[in-house]
Design a protein around this nucleic acid. Structure first.
Length: 585
RNA sequence: GCGCCUGUAGCUCAGUUGGACAGAGCAUCGGACUUCUAAUCCGAGGGUCGCAGGUUCGACUCCUGCCAGGCGCACCA
């Protein structure tokens, strides 16, 4: 059986990015009119319908170069615009806007392409050909993950998904700071807790970690030890000396205890993140992958060879200030202390240069605001080592101010008070937590009231979006029960889709590829979250006023196709955010 | 003192990288289920975009100066 010709359908096999084709039209028109062509056109979706489906200010931005009035240029574009199936008509408005009105018939016909593309709809190649190294969370292994880590995880993971959707080869990474001062502080604190569990009255070290989680960890350690060693160590009544009890001496004992604690911490962090839906390609170790590999020494030599270091007061300094204002650092930085130890900075520079950039053209790090002062010196170092400007990017993920019934909850690992990421997930749920974090710009401080978030679970925007998807699945189930099977794509007559709500929905779906591309380019996943809310906000009213399954079989099938397309895009969008798209709620 | 981030409706936040009369959710008030899921829908009120200048056809957006809050300014990480 041959598929019947479809009214108003024109399947262009071109890419799905509508604005690309509109830009081509404008460029063609300008060339024909003998006017200069712009590199690109900035397309926006006007707030008001009278301004069309897309609008560009190209005529205005071109006015100077073309030495013509904006409106005159716009008129010439309209007069010379090639006939496109996508476009119904063009208008010049205001100071020189070019407003594009899409052809409803073409829009409706494009549903076919959306459905055919399925999960691939919205994917593109805007970031193709680049290898991206993306590091995020990287919490110190000195304590459990807290709320801000959940935010960074949501943002980082969504960024990875976004960039991959645009063709980039992304390696995600969690960097474990298992060396240096903080590691030692952890080791000493843990040692103190172990001793305490053995009955010794021990006080915690200065700058240690007083959190109770180390007590629990100490008990686990001793339990494991007893199982392994068959009973030892005994408690204070029999043995009072820790070295003797654990059969280890001094630094060896400290190091072994510290490594054990770190391994446990990292394992627990990894598990929580996995439950959150975030898995990393690489778990890097500062100790193993950088220090033990001898990278810091190599990078010091390389910087010295470039004449970028000098000795003063017994320490080795990096000439950060000589790298020009592109780096923006305001003072030189120590690479090797007078004690002979390399600084964290030196280790980091080495790691970035030899490891991260070895496999990537672009390195993106998500930092907390407490590290923003660290960025200029890193940028200076990357520049000094020959990495092009812009290849090293840092996104600052701002803090989460936690409230409970309007009262601020202080968070400090040092003081041992905090709300754990685990607790957040338990109270709010994975999807709601991720979606909430992704409805804010990453560099905007966020207030999160736990009491409100838990109380208003049903009002959370994430459920609004998910519910739209669940409803569509429900319609599909209902249709199947009633024996309304959807015919093959090519045979579906989309002609009956004609109400303003239906046309508006299809036009909305057509924006999706541009949205994804823009969000990836700007590294702003929150755009996706907002857009999805608006899409759901169009579907729910449509559902309410237009019955999908009804007597008119032709109309039913067309509407089912529309619903499937909306459901597909909701699914694709939620997937970019790492949020589930439930079939039923 | 210097640097970074933030300041938009009562609250939490968007505002498409300078566009057209400033938006959403929550909260408040008033309505809608015998029909594909009411976690929904329809309607109403709510604003000097922190303040003052400047740039231009056009500013929430860019520049300067103030005000307020957060964070940072180590031979810590």
């Amino acid at each position: 059986m041959k598929s019947p010709p479809l009214r108003g359908d024109s399947c262009s096999g071109a890419s799905m990015d509508l604005t690309d084709r509109l830009t081509e039209g404008v460029r063609t028109a300008l060339a024909k009119a003998g006017l200069p062509e712009p590199e690109t056109c900035a397309w926006e979706v006007p707030r008001q319908a009278e301004h069309g489906d897309y609008a560009t200010n190209t005529a205005m931005t071109l006015a100077r170069a073309a030495r013509r009035a904006p409106r005159q240029i716009a008129d010439l574009i309209v007069a010379n615009f090639p006939p496109l199936a996508e476009v119904e008509r063009l208008e010049v408005a205001g100071p020189g806007f070019l407003n594009v009105f899409l052809s409803p018939a073409w829009c409706v016909g494009s549903l076919r392409e959306i459905l055919a593309a399925g999960p691939a709809y919205g994917r593109g190649a805007a970031e193709a050909g680049q290898r991206v190294r993306l590091e995020f969370v990287s919490a110190n292994p000195t304590g459990p993950l807290v709320i801000v880590n959940a935010r960074a995880a949501a943002v980082g993971d969504a960024l990875a998904r976004l960039l991959r959707a645009q063709g980039a080869r992304v390696t995600t990474e969690y960097y474990v700071n298992d060396a240096g001062n903080q590691f030692e502080a952890l080791a000493r604190s843990f040692e103190a807790r172990v001793a305490q569990e053995l009955g010794e009255p021990v006080t915690l070290p200065e700058n240690g970690y007083p959190g109770e989680y180390l007590i629990a960890l100490a008990r686990e350690y001793l339990e494991e030890y007893r199982e392994r060693e068959g009973g030892a160590p005994r408690d204070r009544r029999e043995r009072t000396d820790l070295d003797e009890a654990l059969g280890l001496g001094g630094e060896t004992r400290l190091d072994r205890l510290g490594r054990w604690a770190v391994a446990r911490m990292v394992e627990s962090q990894r598990r929580i993140l996995r439950d959150y839906g975030v898995e990393f390609d690489v778990w890097a170790s500062e100790q193993r992958d950088v220090r033990a590999a001898g990278l810091p020494g190599r990078v010091l030599a390389e910087l010295a060879a470039r004449g970028l270091t000098y000795e003063q007061d017994g320490a080795l300094w990096f000439r950060s200030t000589q790298l020009g204002e592109a780096s923006g650092d305001d003072k030189d930085r120590v690479l090797r202390r007078s004690s002979g130890e390399v600084t964290y900075f030196a280790v980091d520079v080495a790691y970035h240069h030899y490891v991260k950039f070895a496999g990537a053209d672009r390195v993106i790090n998500l930092f907390g605001p407490d590290h923003h002062g660290y960025v200029p010196r890193m940028r200076a170092a990357m520049q000094a080592l020959g990495h092009p400007p812009g290849s090293f990017e840092v996104l600052i993920v701002q803090l989460v101010t936690l409230l409970r019934e309007g009262q601020p909850v202080r968070m400090s690992k040092r003081r041992g008070e905090f709300v754990l990421m685990e607790e957040l997930l338990e109270e709010v749920g994975r999807d709601a937590a991720r979606f909430t974090f992704l409805t804010r710009r990453h560099d905007s401080p966020l207030e999160f009231d736990l009491a409100v978030a838990t109380r208003q679970t049903a009002d959370n925007p994430v459920y609004y979006v998910q519910y739209a998807h669940a409803r569509i699945c429900s319609i599909r189930r209902q249709a199947a029960e009633q024996g309304v099977a959807r015919p093959p794509l090519g045979e579906t007559d989309l002609g009956p889709l004609a109400t303003p709500e239906e046309i508006a929905l299809v036009k909305r779906l057509l924006q999706y590829p541009d949205l994804v591309r823009g969000a990836a380019r700007a590294l702003e996943p929150h755009r996706v979250a907002y857009w999805l809310q608006e899409l759901a906000g169009m579907f729910h009213p449509y559902y309410k006023t237009h019955r999908v399954i009804q007597d008119d079989r032709r109309l039913t099938l067309a509407r089912l196709a529309l619903c499937e397309a909306v459901g597909q895009v909701l699914r694709n969008g939620l997937d970019l955010l790492g949020v589930s798209a439930p079939e039923a709620m």
